[in-house]
Structure formats: C-alpha cells, structure tokens
Simulated assay, not measured.
Amino acid sequence: MVRAEALARWKSPVIGEIMPTRFIEVAEESGLIANITLAVLKQAIAALKSWKDPIPLSINLSGHDLISDQIISQIIAQVQASELDPALLEFEVTETAMMADTHKASSNMLRLAALGHPLALDDFGTGYSNFSYLRTLPISKLKVDRSFMKDVSDPMTEKILHSLVGMARTLGVDCLLEGVEDEIQLVLAKRVGTHMVQGYLFGIPMTDGELLTSLAGQDAVAEDVVALDAVNG
C-alpha cells in the first residue's frame, strides 16, 4: 500500500447515512463545498500527525476550490501550520473541475505543486483530455476512471487502457487504474502496464484506525477521524 484517499462521510443522528453522491452535489450547488474540503483536510492532517509511520493521503479538490485563491491559500496555511511534509498530501482534481476557469485552476495547481504537493488528475479518460493540454499542467499522476474496468471481456477495453497508460508514460507521470475489484481486473491492469491500482480488491472505505490495523507491521492506534480508500502500487 502506497497511499490512501481521504473520503467524506455523513451519518446524521436524525436521518441516518447520507450518500456522498447526494450531499457533495448539494454542497457544490450551494457553495458550501469548500467547508467540506477544509474539514477533510483538517482531519487528514490530524490523522497523519497521529500515525507513527504516516501513509500518504490524497484529498479531492472541487472546481470551486480550484478557482478560489482564498481557499487554496487556506489549504496551504493549514498544511504549513501542521509542519507536515507536503509530499504526504496529494490533491486530486478532475478535468471538469478545471473547465470553469482553466487559467485560474492551472495557476492554483502550480501554487500547490511548487510547495511539494503531488497532484493527480482524477477520472482520467472521461473528460476533455488532450495531450497538449495535459503536458502544461503540473500533474504527477493520472487516475484512469473506474468505468473502463466494468467490461474486461470486451477486447476494446484492453486496447483503450493500453492507450491511456501509454499516454501517461509519454507524459512521464504515474498511471493508476481505479475500480479494481477482482483478480481478473488486476490481471488486466498488470497486462496493460500500470503499476498502481485502487479498488475494493484491496480494501473498502474504512476509518483511519481500521486502516492502521489492516497494515502488517503497523502498531500505531489513532482516533477514527476520516474514511479512507486504499491505493495499492
């Protein structure tokens, strides 16, 4: 395991568990998504500082976050105040998130990259990817969307994945395949040449404490503060 992704979860004492696809959408529409981003970052930092041997974490940034100089400044301030190594916190963005203001989004991505934060392009292959556009961004990883792993029996699936992995190799960045949930999908991932995968085959979303106990050789116990999705390489 080389990294884990910090995920937001909401369990209301009144109406029970609300799915992220619902409350994240509402938060984005209402302009409250930045509050969630900062809260997740705060808890992720607390988890990292409590672990004896920190596992690098990834945190998602919304389109609103990405084009807001103020939010990016608050993110930077939180990390700097924590005195953590910036390499421990990777930020994930989507092409769709950058479309509202590509220039501003690129500028803020450069700010984060300049401080040592890895940047990953999430849901790769489903947006408006083009080579000339991608090579101008400070991206260190392409995360191929899980939709490409749904039909591994289709001969075109392997050809498309080969192409996407090849593009990452040409750009000189890492390539991760999402949605690996069984051994057949893992075999396909290996066959197309990627060295990193993420999915339920290696772990379902869990608390930080559960993550620690699932790792061999880890004896640190931390308070349950974030949900995590394991990334394997």
Score class of each variant (00 low, 15 high):
Leu112Lys: 07
Asp174Ala: 06
Gly63Leu: 04
Leu38Ile: 11
Gly16Ile: 07
Met167Tyr: 01
Gly203Met: 02
Thr37Ser: 08
Asn130Thr: 11
Asp154Gly: 01
Lys150Ile: 03
Gly217Asp: 07
Tyr128Val: 10
Leu134Gly: 01
Met99Ile: 11
Ser50Ile: 04
Ser129Leu: 04
Met1Asp: 06
Ser68Asn: 08
Gly199Ala: 09
Val79Leu: 11
Ala39Pro: 00
Asn232Trp: 11
Met156Ser: 12
Glu210Asn: 14
Gln74His: 08
Ser129His: 01
Met109Leu: 15
Val14Cys: 03
Asp174Gln: 15
Thr102Arg: 07
Ile36Thr: 03
Ala6Ser: 11
Leu161Thr: 05
Ile55Ser: 04
Val93Lys: 08
Ala39Arg: 08
Ala27Val: 05
Ala189Asn: 08
Thr207Lys: 02
Leu66Gln: 07
Leu134Val: 04
Arg191Ile: 09
Leu110Met: 10
Ala81Leu: 13
Asn108Val: 08
Ile24Gln: 09
Phe131Tyr: 14
Val79His: 07
Gly217Asn: 10
Glu29Gln: 12
Asp122Val: 08
Gly217Leu: 12
Arg191Met: 06
Ala220Gln: 14
Thr157Ala: 05
Phe148Cys: 10
Ala77Tyr: 08
Glu92Pro: 00
Lys104Glu: 10
Gly209Thr: 13
Asp219His: 14
Leu41His: 07
Asp151Ala: 13
Ile15Phe: 02
Tyr200Cys: 03
Val14Ser: 13
Glu5Met: 01
Ala216Val: 04
Val165Ala: 09
Ile36Cys: 07
Met156Gln: 14
Tyr133Asp: 04
Tyr133Lys: 08
Met99Glu: 13
Glu90Phe: 06
Ala168Gln: 07
Val79Trp: 01
Gly233Trp: 00
Tyr133Thr: 02
Thr170Ile: 13
Ile33Leu: 06
Glu28Trp: 09
Leu176His: 09
Leu211Ser: 02
Leu119Thr: 06
Asn35Glu: 15
Glu158Arg: 11
Ile18Gly: 07
Gly233Ser: 11
Ala81Trp: 02
Ala97Ile: 04
Gln43Tyr: 12
Tyr200Glu: 07
Met99Lys: 10
Asn232Val: 10
Val187Cys: 05
Ile18Thr: 07
Ala100Gln: 14
Val93Asp: 06
His64Cys: 01
Ala47Pro: 00
Ile59Leu: 05
Ser132Thr: 10
Ser214Arg: 10
Leu32Thr: 14
Gln74Ser: 13
Thr126Gln: 05
Asn108Gln: 04
Leu110Phe: 06
Ser106Trp: 01
Ala4Thr: 02
Ala6Asn: 12
Thr157Tyr: 09
Met109Gln: 05
Lys49His: 09
Val144Cys: 09
Leu84Arg: 12
Gly193Ala: 14
Gly233Ala: 10
Met196Tyr: 05
Met19His: 11
Ile75Tyr: 14
Glu83Ala: 15
Ser132Pro: 05
Arg169Ala: 04
Ile67Arg: 14
Leu110Asp: 13
Glu5Gln: 12
Ser140Trp: 00
Asp182Phe: 00
Asp224Tyr: 13
Ile160Thr: 14
Asp154His: 06
Val93Asn: 12
Phe202Trp: 10
Ser12Gly: 03
Ser82Thr: 03
Arg3Ala: 12
Ser106Ala: 15
Gln185Ala: 11
Leu66Asn: 02
Ala222Cys: 12
Ile75Thr: 15
Leu201Glu: 15
Lys104Met: 15
Arg146Ser: 06
Leu211Met: 15
Thr21Tyr: 12
Ile33Gly: 09
Leu7Lys: 09
Asn108Leu: 01
Leu119Cys: 02
Ile76Pro: 05
